[in-house]
Amino acid sequence: MVLIQINGKMVKAHEGEMVLSVLRREGIEVPALCDHQALEPGGSCRLCMVEITKADWDGWTKNVTSCLYPVEEGLIVSTHSEGVLEIRRNILDMLLARCPNSDVIQKLAEEHGVMKTSFDTLPDSDNCIMCYACTRVCEVLGKSAISAVMRGHKKVIASPFGDAPPDCIGCLSCAHICPTNVILWKDENGKRTIWNKSFDLITCKKCGKETISREFADYLLEQRDIPADYFETCDDCKRMELAFKMGGLVDGAEEVAI
């Protein structure tokens, strides 16, 4: 346990924990677009910047991204000082120029008092803020089917050579984790399309409802010890099955304990 001070209040934190997770626990709102608990912190959106200092730093302060800064005994954090707010406003200003059509960015910017970007907006922007959440989630999954390509302002998230990514299993994790909902997919007629790749969806053998992609199920079976037939029925039918199975048992016994 270490003691740190956040906005004047003493707070307990776990050793090795990042400042942002303490802020989250304490209910202190700090925007963080590239942060997700399933992922290692990436530090690319820079919105979770806070100002830190220590008693013996002689009034010297430093701006750090709270998602990556580990707590230290005696750390003094301010999350809403004028300097920090200025940085957040300016970053949102830049993001708004890049993603003028993203409602997520618009809303966040407005909350910080940035109603309009000071810069020329990017024509035909795709609203991607390059937070790497999609590539990081794909890496955690063990696939790394997509990655960031090119450099600087030209950097984009893409599949290898822009083709259908050979390693993609159509799990949609990237699309779901995207903070600005940029990654598009479509489920149609038993097929799922994402990253220009088409996948067969598993259809429930009883009712025909579409569930996850066949390749994702295969990957889960390869990774984890789960009976294959679990994936062949949809959740609705599986609940029915359970009811009938338990009903059969009930007719013999009085109660069923779990």
């Binding site: 690319s44 959106c45 820079r46 993001l95 020329d120 450099r151 600087g152 302002h153 030209k154 950097k155």
Partner: peptide, 18 residues
């Protein structure tokens, strides 16, 4: 610098470009 920025973080990628 715009050409050589790696593009990982917003201020460098967007800011220098602007």
């Amino acid at each position: 610098l715009v050409q050589e920025s790696c593009g990982k973080c917003v201020p460098c990628r967007e800011g220098l470009y602007q």
